[in-house]
Simulated assay, not measured.
Amino acid sequence: MTILVTGASGKLGPLVIDALLARGASPDDLVAGARTPSDADALAQRGIRVVRFDYADPDSLRPALEGVDALLLVSGTEFGARVAQHGNVIAAAAEAGVGKLVYTSAPHADTTPLVLAADHRATEEAIAASDVPAVILRNNWYSENYLGDLAIAADTGRVFAAVGDGRVASAPRADYAEAAAVVLLEDGHVGETYELAGDHPWTFDELAAAIAEVLGRDVEYARLTVDERIAALQEAGLDEGTAGFVAALDAGIRDGALADADGTLARLIGRPTTPLVETLRQAA
Rank of each mutant, 00 (worst) to 15 (best):
L215T: 13
N140E: 12
A22W: 01
Q234C: 00
E235K: 15
I269Q: 03
E240C: 02
A117E: 03
A210N: 12
N140C: 14
G47T: 12
V16Y: 00
L4D: 00
A42C: 00
P133Y: 07
D187N: 13
D239T: 07
A283R: 05
G7N: 00
T273D: 08
F79E: 14
A284Y: 10
A70M: 00
A222Y: 02
L30Q: 05
A93W: 01
A259N: 11
A154S: 13
G148D: 14
T279L: 07
G263W: 11
V31H: 04
I211R: 03
R223W: 01
A177H: 04
V135F: 00
A32H: 03
T279D: 06
D41T: 14
A197K: 04
H200Y: 09
E95P: 12
Q234F: 00
P27G: 11
A134V: 02
D262Y: 13
T273C: 10
D250R: 12
E195H: 14
H120S: 13
D69K: 12
S143C: 11
A128N: 05
D119L: 03
Y221L: 03
Q45C: 00
P275I: 10
A151R: 15
P201R: 11
Y103C: 02
E95A: 15
S170A: 15
R52Q: 14
E186N: 13
S26N: 13
L30P: 04
V159N: 08
F79N: 11
R46N: 07
F160T: 11
Q234L: 04
G216Y: 09
P37D: 08
V68A: 08
A257Y: 04
P14Y: 00
V159D: 06
M1C: 09
D119A: 15
A179I: 03
L276G: 03
A19I: 04
A248D: 13
E195W: 08
E220D: 12
G157Y: 08
L280K: 05
S9E: 01
W141Q: 15
G10L: 03
A257T: 13
A162W: 02
A106T: 06
V68I: 15
T279E: 04
F53K: 05
L116S: 07
L12M: 07
S170W: 05
R46F: 06
Q234W: 00
V50F: 04
L150R: 04
G97D: 13
W141P: 14
G244S: 12
R46S: 11
S170Q: 14
A284W: 12
R82C: 06
D218V: 05
A154Y: 11
D155A: 15
P58Y: 07
D155G: 14
T264K: 03
D255R: 07
T279N: 09
D29Q: 14
D28S: 15
D18M: 02
A212K: 06
M1N: 12
L249S: 10
Y142C: 08
I90D: 02
Y55S: 10
